[in-house]
Design a protein around this nucleic acid. Structure first.
Lengths: 228, 228, 228, 228
DNA sequence: TATGAATGAGCATTCATTCAT
DNA sequence: GATGAATGAATGCTCATTCAT
């Protein structure tokens, strides 16, 4: 994981900075252990996939005992779901922060969205592999989990499109939810290849540009649409 | 499976053309059983996913004994891979046939490709679910399977883009392989939603139009690109 | 199997030499097939042991279909037992014939017995391995089989000792059944080594001499016994 | 198993000698469980043979769960091999201890060896049955196990013969390894009968005397050998 | 809290036996 | 009789989960 791993823990671990180490310590110790388990799970799931990863492997990646995992998570499924929630929450937070900082209109923010999507993947390959590969399976087969955080993620995309449409920048003959889906699918599939092939960061940036260009050009209003 | 199931068997089931039923009969008997098992597996995998499907469930879906499966497939992994090969082969055959029949240029053929992609999904929902959900996992975690048939599929898409580029119809500043991937990703993700939501066929057609329109418009050469 | 294999089939396969091949053919065909299965089983059991040998392996060794085996034997256990019966019967026949031909007293016949025991093992290594390795297991665990043919074999040995005792040549303070057992055990164990090590025939003869000498010298009446 | 079972555990169970029961406790707990499993396996193998014994039967004999067995042994084969190692080690230890205590020459020690051999069998019938019946099969068919502990056992016997030969007490025209084998074979076969027939201890002692006498008299140097 | 030994339900796979041809 | 595809009961082993310490 390395340098960036701490960034990926949504449950802000130590924002208080109290002067006393008495009782908060235990709190932090716990939270830190929970975080270690999630990191271990991420690493393991990225490497071997959810179904091929043993709970004991996660434990050893995390440096805790098998049983400890069950102090923080109900079961293996819950661990997977929690990992999604945690990472997606972090991703969403970051997306929103960075999008807010974008200086420009909807078009620039959509481009920023796409570039950030790829940038996150470069920063944490394990996370990228995990999400690209496990998201579909788990959404469908891990109990009845509805993956609300992923829905939130899509809502951001969807919102951008909506806004562009109401501002008259994007074609309004397209269903914004559909466009969001398609865009996510395109990004996700390309990312899958990038992570599996362990493409170099520079190339990744280039690919992001291309995807961005291809999609955007298809979305902007123009005199003669090819809509048949 | 129903009406269309027969269409999805790549091993052409009736090659005989002889007037006598002498020896082909035995051949067909076992080919048919192999086919039944593949169908059962498809149904079961679509319903519960590869890892949650028991071999005995596949057997009972197929109407054969558990042990029979091992007469036709080495193990559960091999069954999954064989199912991919078989269905992808069939899809590719059909794609090629229908694309050849398209009256028009590259643009029309790309549109036809997209429509056919969705049409196939409507014809066999189980197949659509199976491919959208299991393709990624298995490509990565089922032994070292490299999924050559899927590569063939992508090659068709990739070839269309290439041709469009050399004919000056599509932007040549885009990497055709990347575009192919992105397009597949968009189609696949949208299909995933359609199948999971069990969307009505009419809406599917409409969605295909939109995706087609959105993508195409981004690919054609126009005076002012937004390429940043 | 080779040259000697035919010798080991107790059910005399074709001693008649009739001029007509009409109906005897079927008879002989059957008997011959039964013999082939027994030979295949012997080879397979010698190579991999009863429990590690699949019925289908026996079938393929014998050049028949799996199901054919069940036309001649009730089940796998029965095949094992029949093989014992058949081979032991043959061995016993040969022992009795050769012992009858021995020119000399009990002492010479006991020596001949020991030599023949080893000689048979050299003639058919598979048979030797089969009997040394499988006899104990099967005697104990294959149903309630009491191995009457093996009892017959021991009776010959036992009878020789008895006779020697009543003739005053062998010590009569020893239980003849016990001596028989011990002698068989010694021969059997040494043979086990010989067959596993694939010792050359010449050495085998030498070892037979030694065993014979060692045992005999302990059995004959002498002025000062070490009986404690 | 009963009274004597504890004796048969080679891993010396009480190495502590400390006054405190602090840390050895855990150690002993798992060693004890390993021991219970070996005892259960011995009982089960003696009763039904290796191939007819289910792992779950061993578990229930040992009073542990099926899975527990795999915490201590790699698989069923490993359990068998471990059982051999453990029991043979114990037997060898005891043989060496008792032989060292023998007051007398090689002759007395050989007699002691034979008597101890039988005595051990009476003390633990299951062990006797297990070794007499399973030794051969397993040596040959359980993986590539070479049974080094059994080789050690034979070495003791072999060493006794060697010593007797160099002291001029035993005939030196016999190969000591061959004599060792033959002697073991005789003892083993007689033991097989004794255990299967559940002979009374008194008779066993008598039989040991006879075997001992028969063999010894054949080994000592005498003016007129029958070596032919 | 934390541990990790113990549990036992669960499952892929095998293989002796059957039976339609 | 002969075949060998089909059967399905049987079983070794795994691994998520528990719980005594």
């Amino acid at each position: 994981m390395g340098i960036h791993s701490a960034h990926f823990c949504a449950r802000s671990p130590l924002k208080r900075g109290s002067f006393f180490m008495a009782e908060p310590d235990k709190q932090r110790g716990s939270t830190e252990k929970r975080g270690r388990i999630l990191e271990g799970a991420l690493r393991a799931f990225a490497k071997k996939g959810f179904y091929n990863t043993k709970v004991s492997e996660i434990a050893s990646e995390a440096g805790v005992a098998d049983g400890t995992i069950y102090l923080y998570f109900k079961n293996k499924d819950d661990l997977l779901i929690s990992l999604f929630e945690d990472r997606m929450e972090w991703i969403i937070d970051r997306l929103q922060t960075e999008l807010k900082a974008v200086d420009g209109g909807v078009l620039e923010r959509l481009k920023a969205f796409i570039h950030l999507h790829f940038r996150l993947a470069i920063e944490d390959r394990d996370l990228a592999e995990f999400i690209t590969v496990e998201l579909r399976q788990s959404a469908k087969f891990v109990k009845e989990y509805k993956n609300p955080k992923f829905a939130d993620y899509l809502k951001i995309l969807h919102g951008l499109i909506d806004q562009g449409q109401s501002e008259g920048i994007f074609r309004s003959d397209l269903d914004s939810r559909l466009v969001g889906r398609a865009l996510f699918g395109a990004l996700d599939e390309v990312l899958l290849q990038l992570t599996l092939a362990r493409t170099a960061p520079n190339d990744v940036k280039n690919e992001a540009e291309q995807i961005s260009s291809m999609i955007i050009d298809g979305l902007i209003v123009r005199p003669h649409s090819t809509m048949d």
